[in-house]
Simulated scan of single mutants.
Amino acid sequence: MPPHNPPGGAAVGRLSDLPLLEAKAICYLRLWCAGPEAQAEVWNAFAAHGPDAAQERMRDFEELVSSMIRMARRPLQRRHLGCACVSGDESAFGHMIAAAAIGEREDAMLLASLLVRPEAWMPLVILAEQVGLSLARMHLPMPASVRSTHPQTLRKH
């Protein structure tokens, strides 16, 4: 019998198949949720690409992740840092950020509806837009834990 995957936990794809912005968003989500040492890697990446705005970018990212966890419809399912697979919840998160960053708010809200309760859809999408634009502008590298497994890390976006 195959192992049971909780809702949102089944592998739905691979990091290497995702557009770079979505893959980065998922990897930085995993880092943030892994604890203080991993959060320091997120901070260092943000600070390396504009120390003046790093604090605001970090605050937006932290607020996005903590709001998503606090307002979740159910416990969010993530893969471990080095995993090449992407869970359904992680996929929705990455797609939501990408959609919000290009102004596709309706699509982003639909994706948010998979993750959080209705009253959080629009606030989460507004934060996702800010975070997505920041991630896209900063040209952040893939986190070291996945850099060697993602073919798009050689390209700059």
Results as ranks from 00 to 15, higher is better:
Arg155Glu: 04
Glu22Arg: 11
Gln152Arg: 13
Val125Leu: 09
Gly50Cys: 12
Asn5Asp: 15
Ser134Tyr: 06
Met58Ile: 00
Leu15Gln: 05
Ala48Val: 06
Glu37Val: 04
Arg30Trp: 07
Ala120Cys: 07
Leu124Arg: 01
Phe93Lys: 02
Ala10Ser: 08
Val86Phe: 07
Ala112Asn: 13
Ser91Ala: 12
Ala100Lys: 01
Leu20Gly: 01
Gln39Val: 07
Ala101Asn: 04
Ser148Tyr: 07
Met68Glu: 06
Ala34Asn: 06
Val42Arg: 00
Asp107Pro: 05
Ser16Asp: 15
Ser66Gln: 12
Ala72Tyr: 13
Pro6His: 08
Trp32Asp: 00
Glu22Thr: 09
Met122Asp: 12
Met68Pro: 02
Ile102Leu: 11
Glu119Asn: 07
Arg59Glu: 15
Gly13Leu: 13
Val146Lys: 03
Thr149Tyr: 07
Asp17Gln: 10
Glu106Asp: 12
Asn5Phe: 15
Ala25Gln: 06
Leu31Glu: 11
Ala84His: 12
Pro19Trp: 10
Leu15Trp: 07
Trp43Lys: 04
Thr153Asn: 10
Gly50Asn: 08
Met96Trp: 12
Cys33Arg: 06
Gln77Thr: 02
Met71Ser: 11
Leu29Tyr: 08
Arg57Ser: 02
Pro36Asn: 10
Leu20Phe: 01
Trp43Cys: 00
Val12Trp: 12
Arg74Cys: 04
Arg155Thr: 00
Tyr28Met: 03
Pro118Gly: 03
Tyr28Ala: 03
Asp89Arg: 02
Glu129Pro: 05
Ala112Cys: 13
Lys156Pro: 00
Leu76Cys: 04
Arg117Gly: 09
Glu119Arg: 13
Leu29Ile: 01
Val86Pro: 08
Gly8Thr: 08
Leu18Cys: 05
Arg59Val: 12
Glu90Met: 03
Pro6Phe: 14
Met68Asp: 00
Met71Tyr: 14
Phe46Met: 14
Ile126Trp: 06
Ala48Cys: 08
Pro151Met: 10
Val116Arg: 03
Arg79Ala: 15
Leu81Pro: 02
His150Ala: 02
Leu76Ser: 05
Val125Gly: 00
Ala54Pro: 04
Tyr28Arg: 01
Gly82Arg: 04
His139Asn: 07
Val42Trp: 05
Arg117Tyr: 08
Ala84Thr: 12
Glu119Val: 11
Gly8Gln: 04
Arg70Leu: 11
Glu62Phe: 01
Arg78Ser: 08
Met58Phe: 15
Pro141Ile: 05
Leu31Tyr: 10
Phe61Glu: 08
His150Leu: 10
Ala112Thr: 11
Gly9Lys: 04
Leu114His: 11
Arg117His: 11
Arg78Leu: 15
Pro51Ala: 09
Phe93Val: 08
Met71Thr: 05
Gly132Ser: 03
Ile126Tyr: 07
Gly132Asp: 01
Leu111Phe: 12
His150Asn: 04
Leu31Lys: 01
Pro75Gly: 09
Ala53Ser: 13
Met109Val: 05
Arg147Ala: 14
Glu63Met: 14
Glu62His: 10
Gly9Arg: 02
Gly94His: 05
Gly94Tyr: 06
Ser148Leu: 14
Asp89Trp: 07
Gln77Leu: 06
Phe93Asp: 03
Tyr28His: 02
Ala92Pro: 06
Ala108Arg: 04
Gly50Met: 11
Ala144Arg: 12
Leu20Ala: 11
Gly13Met: 13
Trp43Asp: 00
Leu135Lys: 01
Gly9Ala: 15
Pro123Arg: 09
Pro7Cys: 11
Ile126His: 00
His157Arg: 02
Glu62Pro: 00
Asn5Ala: 14
Asp52Gln: 15
Pro19Gly: 13
